[in-house]
């Protein structure tokens, strides 16, 4: 867990760098999720790392639900 929290105003203006669509903020795992791109961008020490290279690919199961 990061000790520093991400700036809420910054979260408001961030979109997925690939799809330019809104992101879902997962505060528990400190990730910004882009469903369309299938990526979870990490937030490290309050810094969103909006680099597709550094993002975690989302796995979808058969029901179409996103598994962690």
């Amino acid at each position: 867990m990061s000790t520093e929290s991400v700036d809420p105003k910054l979260l408001e203006i961030l979109v997925c760098p690939l799809t330019k669509e809104p992101l879902r903020y997962d505060s528990e795992h400190q990730e910004l999720i882009s469903e369309r791109a299938g990526l979870a961008y990490p937030i490290r020490d309050g810094i969103p790392i909006m680099l597709p290279d550094e993002a975690r690919p989302l796995d979808t199961d058969s029901s179409g639900k996103v598994a962690p």
Binding site: V15, M50, L51
Partner: peptide, 27 residues
């Protein structure tokens, strides 16, 4: 672009590629 660089900056900060900006239009 470099997380190591931006982590040394103050205030709201974000790591991103200049070629794929993660900002909403009109921000």
């Amino acid at each position: 672009f470099s997380p190591a660089m931006v982590s040394r900056a103050a205030g709201p900060r974000v790591a991103a590629d200049e070629e794929a900006l993660p900002f909403k239009g009109g921000s």
